[in-house]
Every structure is written in structure tokens, then in C-alpha cells.
């Protein structure tokens, strides 16, 4: 059984199992309350699944891409929960969970997943299909773009079906992890996908105060 945590969009927490599927899940689309609700959600999911942290075989962390402040809350929670429970951290790219869910609900063939990156930009990932294991085959990176760039006919995935998502399901994130493990595929790197440098401007030295 895995505990899965994702705060790349709203906040979502779940307990999943390869055989039993999603056992418990809590979600909140509000993007301003990650730090408040992540703790209660973890506790509620464990209680509903009726398990102790020691029963978990891993903690899945959604690595984004996602807006920094919120994204970090989930990754910090996943990493530290794994440390406290003495179980491994399993990093998964959040877009893969969105694609996995869409394929499971019947989509076939190419797919571009798009999420809000704020500041009039978007995050995107491109998938060619769901493979035999049901895992989405990512063929284009999680990237950062202006909306117009994806509409440009010369873009590599220009005419592919597009899915704009406002939430990420930790249940689906967890199932991607279960399937990835079961089919011995590599996990993502344990690194947040900010895809943007911190906003800082180097000053040109102190401004004059006297005229």
C-alpha cells in the first residue's frame, strides 16, 4: 500500500494499492490552502484505509510541474512522512497521473496534458499512448510555455488532443507509482519540477537619494 500526496495544483492525498485500487482519497481544488489541509488529509486517508504508517510500502510524492509555493508543501510532506514512517519516497511526475486517468477513462492515442503555471504561462507534457501496463508513454517533456506556443501549427504536438486539467488526483498518482513498480519501470527524479528560475533581479547598486 502507498500513501500518495500531490500539491502541484490543489491538494490531493490518497491511499492506494495495486490490487485494491484507490482505497481512500481526499481532494481540495483551492490553491491557497495547501499547508492547512495536507496534514488533515493524510490523517483522514490513513484512518479511512484503517492502516498505520508502518503498513505502507512507500510514500508517493507528486514532483510537479506546478507553481512553486504549493508544489513544495506536498513534496516536503511526502519526503518527511517517508522519513518518519521509515519507508521509501517514490517520486512521480504529476502530469503522468492526469494522463493515466484520462487513458483509463477511455482516451486512446496522442494526448497533451496542460496545467496552469500562472503568470499567463502553462505547463505541458505530451503522451503518445497508454502502454500495455496502462502507463502513459510520455514523449514530450514537462515543459513551460506561453499559451500561444501550443497553438502554433509548427509546434511538434500541435494537432494532438489536448486536456486542460485544474486538479491532480493523488489516487491516480499513486496508481501510476504502483504500476511503475509492478512493471519495473524507472521512477522520476526526487526533484521538484519548478521549470522556472526564482524571480530575482540583480540590483545595479544603491539608488541615489540626494539630488
Amino acid at each position: 500500500m502507498l500513501l500518495a500526496i500531490d500539491t502541484s495544483a490543489g491538494t490531493s492525498v490518497a491511499v492506494v494499492d495495486l490490487a485494491r485500487g484507490v482505497i481512500a482519497e481526499r481532494g481540495e481544488a483551492d490553491t491557497m490552502r495547501h499547508a492547512e489541509i495536507v496534514g488533515p488529509f493524510i490523517l483522514q486517508c490513513l484512518q479511512e484505509a484503517d492502516i498505520a504508517p508502518a503498513d505502507l510500502s512507500g510514500v508517493v510524492g507528486g514532483m510537479g510541474p506546478g507553481p512553486f509555493t504549493g508544489l513544495r508543501v506536498g513534496i516536503a510532506s511526502a519526503r518527511v512522512f517517508a522519513l518518519g514512517a521509515g519507508t521509501p519516497l517514490v517520486p512521480v511526475i504529476s502530469h503522468d497521473a492526469i494522463a493515466y486517468g484520462h487513458y483509463r477513462r477511455g482516451h486512446t492515442g496522442p494526448l497533451v496534458v496542460v496545467t496552469d503555471a500562472r503568470r499567463r504561462e502553462i505547463y505541458w507534457s505530451a503522451y503518445s499512448e497508454a502502454d500495455a501496463a496502462g502507463l502513459p508513454a510520455r514523449v514530450g517533456p514537462p515543459g513551460l510555455a506561453k499559451p500561444a506556443e501550443l497553438d502554433d501549427a509548427t509546434w511538434l504536438h500541435a494537432r494532438w488532443p489536448r486536456l486542460d486539467a485544474a486538479t491532480v488526483s493523488a489516487g491516480e498518482l499513486g496508481m501510476v507509482a504502483e504500476l511503475t513498480h509492478a512493471h519495473q519501470r524507472p521512477f522520476a527524479a526526487n526533484e521538484p519540477l519548478y521549470l522556472r528560475s526564482p524571480d530575482v533581479t540583480l540590483s545595479n547598486g544603491p539608488k541615489r537619494v540626494s539630488r
Binding site: A35, V38, L43, P53, V73, G84
Partner: peptide, 10 residues
């Protein structure tokens, strides 16, 4: 805050 809550629950 996120980390502390996760540690407390774990």
C-alpha cells in the same frame, strides 16, 4: 509547516 504535520502524523 507541511513537513511538520507529515512528521507528526507519520
Amino acid at each position: 509547516v507541511g513537513a511538520a504535520k507529515a512528521l507528526a502524523v507519520a
